[in-house]
Write a protein that binds this DNA or RNA. Structure first.
Lengths: 248, 248
DNA sequence: CCCAATCCTTGATACAGATCAAAACCATGA
DNA sequence: TCATGGTTTTGATCTGTATCAAGGATTGGG
């Protein structure tokens, strides 16, 4: 059976695909991966890694959501990345990171000790190439976020955030006879954390949610849920080009 | 003679080091690089690459400054990266980019056709590793900039920008008997471009320059120059931790 | 079941930075 | 030398978001 290049690996025990590994690698490599695997769970709010700490593990997020953030001396913080299941934590060839990793919800990681993982990477160019691809994906995402942080209004930020969640969780469920599909989203974070992600305050986030609800674009049945009623209007509100999606 | 790993290559014709190449590679690879090299110059303001355009070349910046930027439908733009001499343009394994590359000043690039360059990368793991390092450096820089865009005040943004220029151009020249060294900086861009980089308007940039000058922290002898009179005060104004520098 | 803690919403007000406008500055070429 | 067009500075005003403040909703524990 022919397996295409760069399809990510579904390993035996984890309910997710490990995005850092490619399916063309031989069974031998997969076995090596299996052997060095270990699981760790962190309750919501836990610091998984501090800035500057030595980085002994790399990991895939198996369940839950973790976040990368940077903090200023006086306490202002900015989230610089969101890690959803299947995302990869770790930097090949680097012993330290320049930001904090925090469990936003309860998080389970599938960890690999860094040293043997890097040895594996050196042996298998496909994995190295896949890691490079992931790094470039992260870079593109970071740059999109820079546009959001630097130029978008509060309303556009919220719309972009909800649109991103809809895309990433792929929960866009067609519904009813109308042309606009609706999506039920689970918010993995509090208003305060959303604010930190978007460069806003929690009050502004709350007000924008209320405004979008008032206009009938979304519904907010409870604090952790959003129903996208009119996805076209939501996407109009993001300020992005129509073809916001990246064509792989 | 022993050459340490990952020292970047100074090639025969360019006045800079190509950061994408490592010195441990054999002469053979260097020769291959030499052969596929070509130079292109772009006058200030030229579009070097449009978003979505096929990416046939990778390149090093030899002289001048180029910028990466993203634009919204309605014209708002945000610079998402600055390319100074020795910086690398291009994405191994990717045929497209998600932003525009513009010549900020007159720019000369040392170009390599993408296909043979990638073949070289595949043959030489050290180069691949170096490219990964560069991508991770860019990612760290992007994340620092996200903190700046999302949370810093106009004054902190300007101070951070000047401090970054001072570090990158390494023009920190000790001067006089005082404890605070001074630095003469050349600004490679207009107020408008600085504003686009910092997520501000040109008027705000100008006002903050004036304010820092009034306070005796900098001097602005002409539109394209800044003299840092008190670098300690400048760094205090960035809002960053004292050890803002990344220890390599 | 109630209490405490946390999270969320809404209102009133303040302010940093955007926007609008005009004048000063500077480089370039005729 | 002067006109010309682009860039920068400065001023006046406006506005979106932060800040301050209070009350309401939700959750978990005893």
């Amino acid at each position: 059976m022919m397996i295409p290049d760069f399809v990510d690996v579904k390993c035996s025990a984890c309910p997710i695909r490990h995005r850092a590994v490619c399916a063309r690698c031989d069974t031998e490599e997969l076995l090596r991966l299996e052997k060095m695997k270990s699981y760790r769970t962190f309750p919501a709010g836990t610091e998984i890694l501090w800035r500057g700490e030595p980085l002994d593990y790399v990991a895939s997020v198996v369940s839950g959501v973790a976040s990368l953030s940077k903090t200023m001396e006086d306490g202002r913080t900015q989230m610089v990345g969101l890690l959803l299941p299947s995302d990869f934590i770790g930097r090949p060839g680097r012993a330290k990171i320049e930001f904090d990793v925090t469990a936003t919800t309860d998080v389970t990681l599938c960890c690999f000790a860094r040293a043997p993982f890097e040895a594996l990477v050196i042996d298998t160019p496909h994995v190295a190439q896949r890691l490079m691809e992931l790094a470039l994906d992260e870079l593109d995402a970071a740059r999109d976020w820079m546009l959001l942080l630097g130029r978008k209004t509060a309303r556009e930020k919220i719309a972009t955030f909800l649109d991103m969640l809809a895309r990433r969780s792929q929960l866009i469920t067609p519904k009813g006879a109308g042309t606009a599909p609706a999506a039920a989203l689970h918010l993995p974070m509090t208003r305060d954390q959303i604010a930190n992600y978007l460069g806003l305050t929690l009050e502004t986030v709350s007000r924008q949610f209320s405004a979008l609800k008032r206009e009938g674009i979304i519904d907010v049945p409870d604090r952790r849920s959003v129903i996208v009623i009119n996805i076209d209007l939501l996407q109009n509100a993001t300020g992005d080009d129509a073809d916001g999606g990246v064509v792989a």
